[in-house]
Nucleic acid binder design. Structure first.
Length: 136
DNA sequence: GCCAACGTTGGC
DNA sequence: GCCAACGTTGGC
């Protein structure tokens, strides 16, 4: 079991859209580092869903239901998509500020390399983020 | 809306 | 194969 964090702009595809749809295919990634992470995802992996832009923060937990396959939104065979389904919302959401304020999360890629849209998490980091929701 | 960070592209 | 220029992302 592996743990990941993916970003989305709520204006493009929000957590609420994901709940409404029941599942989604995660495509449109045009960054090789992110693509490499997507290819490493396995069915059943847990994926945190992060909103960028307004109200930045982790808003839900997803499960990977289909491993990497060619991205249907492009002819470019270098890129892949995966399918996700929502498991549960994180309520209250864990804001970026809260994550940055947690010393044990200072090294995660979300903080260190803000532009990366798909990144791996250690189980401890995953658990810490979930715990921050309970704390606030 | 601005600006900094970073990844990708293309010329040499 | 290197490096400068450019485009995009995302926080503030």
């Amino acid at each position: 079991m592996n743990y990941w964090l993916v970003k989305s702009e709520p204006g493009t595809y929000s957590w609420d859209d994901l709940i409404r749809d029941g599942s989604t295919f995660w495509d449109g990634v045009r960054n090789f580092a992110a693509r490499n992470h997507m290819q490493a995802m396995k069915k059943g992996d847990q994926v945190l869903y992060y909103h960028s832009g307004k109200d930045k923060g982790v808003v839900g937990v997803c499960e990977l239901i289909r491993e990497a396959y060619p991205d249907p939104s492009t002819d470019d065979e270098r890129f892949v998509a995966v399918d996700l389904k929502p498991l549960r919302a994180i309520d209250p959401p864990v804001s970026l500020t809260a994550i940055k304020g947690e010393p044990s999360l200072a090294q995660i890629m979300l903080v260190r390399q803000g532009r990366l849209s798909v990144m791996p998490l250690e189980k401890a980091e995953f658990d810490t983020i979930l715990a921050l929701s309970q704390k606030s």
